[in-house]
Structures are given as C-alpha cells and as structure tokens.
Amino acid sequence: MNSRAQQLQAFDRLLDIMDDLREKCPWDRKQTLESLRHLTIEETYELADAILDNDLNEIKKELGDVLLHIIFYAKIGSEKKAFDIADVANAISDKLVDRHPHIYGDVVVENEKEVQQNWEKLKLKEGKKSVLEGVPKSLPAIVKANRIQDKVAGVGFDWEEPRQVWEKVQEELSELNTEIEHGDQEKIASEFGDVLFSMVNYARFINVNPENALEKTNKKFIKRFQYLEEAAKKEGKALSDMSLTEMDVFWNESKKHFR
C-alpha cells in the first residue's frame, strides 16, 4: 500500500489536474454545481453497484469518479470564493471530532448503540429541530425508510426485540388484506406502504440492509430471466409463444446457476 506521503502526492496531482481541466477543457469549464448534480448521483449508484458485486477493482475506479466530483465541486466553490477543498476537509474533520467525544473527549460509551444515540443528541444541540432533518428528501423510498428508522432509534424510539417488529409486520399484512377485500385502492396503497415500512424496520432488527437485499434479488432475477431467454433461443422458441409450464423448466434450471 502507498505511504501517507504518496497518498498526499496523489491527491495533490488530482488537484493540479482539476485546475488544468477547469482552465483548458471546454466541457469542464462549462460545468456548474447544478450541471454536475445528476452526474454525481449516477456515479454514486455505479459505486453502489460495484460494492454489491464485491468487485474491488471496480470499486476503486468508481471511488475515483466520486472523488473527482468532490474535487470539482470544491474547485467551483473556490471560484465563487465560498470554500475550497481545504475548507471541505476541515469542516468534516471538525464535525467528526465534535461528534466523537468518546474518542476526542471524556465521554464513555459501552457500545455502538450508545455512540449512535450520542450522535443524534449532539446534532440536536447543534441546532437541528428534528432528528429527521438530516434525511434527504430525494432519497429512494426504501433507503429513506431505513434512514428514518435509524434516526429515531438513535434517540430511543424503537422496538425492544425482533419478535415485536415481526408481529407488527403480521398486523400490517392483515390490515392490507382487509382493505383489499373492501376494494378501496387509495387505502390499499396506504396499507401496502405500511407493510413495506414495517418490513424495512424488521430488516434492521435482523441486520439486513433492505436496499442491498432487494437489489441483490433484482440482479439475481435479471440473471435468471436472461438465462431463460437464452435457453429458449437455443431451442428456437420465443418466450411469448411458450406456456408458463415450458418456461418453468428453464427457470428452474436457472436457479441452479444463480442463487
């Protein structure tokens, strides 16, 4: 691995390249905070994909793309005389020191849960009116539900054990079935949302990240379905002309390859 001096040298090189690009490249000169935003979101999702695939080489590349965006935003900030990369680094360093009094102060904690509770209390002392202020509005719904539940758990608003949460899931499923029988679509959608929210909560209690779990299932389904398509093609068949029974043969085969 690289030494600290080599790491700083590499970072300095990236800063120099960013200066060059901003001065000499027509595309880079044109970019603004707003124009980069959707590209940053895309790069973050690409990093998330690489992490789920456990592809360390790809993770390295995607981290570089994300780092470039951070450097880019800081460069634009310096041009606006608002902040530069040193301000960004110092701001997060100051926050980490302030938020970890059990490391940089005299606070004693017993476990991870107490660290999380202290974190949320410190944020309220910093001026936040609600522990939920830090949950971005644009997060995907499942990720947002998970973050909301993490946040409120950090101040003690939580179930005591997984069994209670599972009972809540069952209760929400029952309420959903009732509304399905009544046929009110708006209430059905509302109860379905409650089921999903309770399942996300249960995932937290059994140490499962619901977003990651669902995305892994998405990837698995895609691979299995594409296997089905290829198997049918090899036999000269179109899926639209096959019965479900015929497709099930290939589908069951795909499960042996993609678990």
Rank of each mutant, 00 (worst) to 15 (best):
G183V: 08
V195Y: 03
K220E: 04
V165K: 13
Y202L: 11
E186A: 06
P210F: 02
P162V: 09
K220L: 03
F192D: 05
D184R: 09
N209E: 06
I180H: 08
E215C: 00
P162R: 12
A203K: 05
A213W: 01
K187Y: 04
F157P: 10
D194P: 04
E171V: 10
E215T: 00
V195P: 06
K187P: 03
L196I: 09
L196G: 01
F205I: 03
V165R: 13
F197E: 11
E181F: 08
F197L: 10
V169L: 13
F205N: 07
E167N: 14
H182R: 14
L196R: 06
T217G: 00
F192A: 12
S190V: 05
P162S: 11
L173W: 11
T217P: 05
K168I: 10
D194M: 02
T178E: 15
E181I: 08
L214E: 01
D184M: 01
V169H: 13
T178W: 11
E161N: 15
A203P: 04
I180E: 11
A213V: 01
F205H: 11
N218P: 02
L196P: 05
R163K: 15
V169P: 12
L196F: 04
V195W: 01
K219G: 04
L173F: 12
E191K: 06
M199N: 04
Q185K: 12
N218E: 04
A189D: 01
S198W: 03
N212R: 07
K216N: 02
E191I: 01
V165G: 13
E179W: 03
S174T: 13
E175V: 01
E161T: 13
T178D: 15
L173H: 11
N209W: 01
M199Y: 03
K220A: 03
E171F: 13
A203F: 05
F205A: 07
K219H: 00
M199D: 02
N201I: 02
K220Y: 02
L196K: 07
